[in-house]
Amino acid sequence: MKKIVLALVVTVVACVVVFASQDVKCRQTTAFSSFEQTTSDGFRKIDMQSLPHAVLRTMGTSASYEGCTFEGAYMSGKSGCETYKIKVENPDRTERFVLMNGRGEVIG
């Protein structure tokens, strides 16, 4: 009987330790991710797939971006008046940022 009670206590303590450590890891990851996602100029990193269709169309059809690769996307602003910042790597390996509105118009 003592062995069963001892085994039960050890199992419960092990479960508490495992679940508590996972909760701490989740909180740390969430805090780190939110810190890492926002840049100093107020833009937050987004997936390239999250860009509006008009922005993607401009990036894919404009002669200005021929031979370029797109290295990252960032967004700032409220719903309906977002500004997108696209990191562009030129064919000569130099990098630049292009600002566009949600309609795919270059604004800077």
Rank of each mutant, 00 (worst) to 15 (best):
G42Y: 08
E66H: 08
F43I: 05
M59G: 02
E82C: 01
I4V: 14
M1W: 15
M1Q: 13
T69V: 05
Q49V: 12
K3C: 04
F70T: 05
S50M: 15
G102S: 09
Q22A: 04
C81V: 04
L8F: 09
G77S: 03
S79H: 06
C81M: 04
D92M: 06
I4E: 13
G42N: 10
M100Y: 09
D92R: 07
G60H: 11
R103L: 08
V24S: 13
C81L: 02
E89F: 07
G77Y: 03
K25L: 11
G80V: 00
V98F: 01
T61K: 04
V55K: 04
A63Q: 13
F32P: 00
S50Y: 12
C26P: 01
V98Q: 01
T94I: 06
G67R: 05
E66W: 03
A73R: 04
Q37T: 14
T39N: 13
V88I: 13
Y74A: 03
T11G: 12
P52F: 07
M100G: 03
Q49K: 14
G42Q: 08
V13A: 15
T69W: 00
V88G: 04
A7F: 05
V98A: 02
R27K: 07
R103K: 14
Q37R: 15
R44Y: 15
T38G: 03
Y84F: 15
G42D: 08
V12R: 01
T29N: 14
R96V: 03
C68K: 01
R57T: 10
G102F: 00
R27M: 07
Y74D: 06
I86P: 04
K78L: 04
T11H: 05
S33D: 08
E89L: 14
T30C: 02
T61V: 05
R57Q: 12
T39K: 14
S33Y: 05
T39H: 08
I4W: 07
F19Q: 09
V55E: 06
T11L: 15
V98Y: 00
M75V: 14
F35D: 05
E82I: 00
T30E: 10
S40K: 15
D41N: 13
M1V: 11
S50C: 12
F35C: 02
K78A: 09
D41L: 02
K78S: 05
V106F: 00
